[in-house]
Simulated assay, not measured.
Amino acid sequence: MFIINLTYIKPLDEVEKHLTEHIAFLNKYYANNNFVCSGRKNPRTGGIILCNAKNMKEVEEIINEDPFKKNTIANYDIVEFEPTKYTEDFKVFVE
């Protein structure tokens, strides 16, 4: 499991220009069961994606498709972790 921490490096008006494409990117990886949840940071300085992937290489390949990455809108910090305690509903993501 991976936490993808996006930090905007461009103004919000640039973020907004690519938001529709970014949402399509998110939808693709929700449909593939890679993304578990995502959302904006508060204050709006970036976003967080919880990603279910087999390894760092797969996460990097996924991120490289993000329009925010392609258009240098955000920097990405990736943290790998192993869920050891979770709700019953989350179990599907760790088995």
Rank of each mutant, 00 (worst) to 15 (best):
E21Q: 12
Y30E: 01
A31M: 04
T87Y: 13
V15D: 06
A24S: 09
E61A: 06
M1G: 11
V92I: 15
F93E: 07
N55F: 07
R44L: 06
D89W: 05
I49F: 02
T72Q: 14
L6P: 04
K69Y: 12
I9V: 15
N64S: 15
A53V: 04
P83N: 09
E88R: 14
L6G: 05
A53N: 08
A31W: 00
Y30R: 04
T7Y: 09
I3K: 05
Y29E: 00
C37D: 02
N5W: 09
F25A: 01
I63H: 07
N5A: 09
D89L: 13
E61C: 02
F35T: 12
E88I: 15
I4L: 14
K54F: 06
K10A: 14
K54L: 05
P11W: 09
A53Q: 05
K41S: 00
Y8Q: 05
N33V: 02
D13F: 06
R44S: 03
V59Q: 10
I63P: 03
L19G: 01
C51I: 04
F2S: 03
L12T: 00
T20G: 02
G46M: 08
E88M: 14
A31T: 11
F81W: 15
T7C: 06
N34V: 01
V79N: 04
K28C: 00
F25V: 00
V59M: 03
E58H: 06
E58R: 10
K17P: 00
T84Y: 10
C51Y: 04
D13N: 12
P67L: 14
F90Q: 13
A74H: 10
L26R: 00
F35R: 09
V94F: 12
F2D: 02
P83C: 07
V59R: 04
T84L: 10
E58I: 13
N27C: 02
E61K: 12
T45K: 13
I73H: 10
E65C: 03
H22D: 01
S38K: 00
T45P: 01
V94C: 13
N33Q: 12
P83F: 12
F2G: 02
V94R: 10
K54V: 11
K91D: 15
L50F: 11
T84V: 13
T84E: 15
Y86C: 08
D89F: 08
A74M: 11
S38A: 13
